[in-house]
Amino acid sequence: MRRKDPEYPAALEAAVDILRGRARQGRTITYGELSAELEAQGFDSIPPHRGIMTYLLEDVCLHHNQDGRAPMLSAIVVNKASGEPSDQFSSLARSLPFSRPADWSWRDEQQRVFAECREG
């Protein structure tokens, strides 16, 4: 799958729904689990590493968050072995429009995501 593909917007909405559901529970999700859940919903061309997953998670963070001020939803997506988001997530957080400060941490971002999803 590519961003230009007609099914991409539906895959993005599905990813947002999956992640919000996990965040309401205060739980993280691995890249592999997200890929498997998307596959179960019919999006079978989103492998857990690199490629389209990277772009999908960037777009998840921008979903209804064009100014980057809201918590970055993909902060709860973690590597199975390390329990941490990928280095690409930290790079994204420091780029526009997110521009997280020098003292920012992905753990703080996860807590913001959990808090916002429980409230909303």
Rank of each mutant, 00 (worst) to 15 (best):
D103C: 11
K4E: 12
P6G: 04
V60R: 07
N79E: 14
A10N: 07
A36Y: 03
Q66K: 13
Q110P: 15
M53H: 08
G83Q: 08
R2E: 10
V113M: 02
A36Q: 05
A102R: 13
A14L: 00
G83M: 06
I76V: 08
E13T: 12
I46Y: 14
R94H: 10
P85R: 02
V113Y: 07
M72L: 15
G51Y: 00
P9I: 13
P6E: 08
A70Q: 12
M1Y: 10
N65F: 06
S90P: 02
A14I: 07
P48T: 06
K4P: 02
L96P: 14
R20Y: 00
P47V: 02
A11L: 05
G21P: 08
L57A: 11
S45Q: 13
F43N: 00
Y8Q: 00
V16K: 06
I46G: 15
Y31C: 10
G68N: 08
H63T: 04
D87F: 08
C61E: 00
R20G: 01
L12M: 03
Q111Y: 06
E119P: 12
S99F: 07
E37A: 13
V77R: 03
R107Q: 08
S35A: 04
D17Q: 12
L57Y: 14
I76N: 03
G21D: 06
I46H: 12
E119M: 05
R118A: 01
E13H: 07
P71V: 11
L62W: 02
P47A: 01
R20E: 00
R24A: 10
A102Y: 00
A102L: 06
P6S: 12
Q110N: 14
P97V: 02
K4M: 01
R118D: 00
K4Q: 14
S82W: 00
A40L: 08
D67H: 14
V78I: 15
S91R: 15
D108V: 11
S35P: 07
A70D: 09
F114I: 02
L19Q: 04
W106N: 11
H49G: 09
P71I: 09
H49Q: 15
A10P: 03
D108M: 10
A93C: 09
M53W: 09
S74G: 07
V113C: 05
L92W: 07
V16Y: 07
P85A: 01
L73G: 13
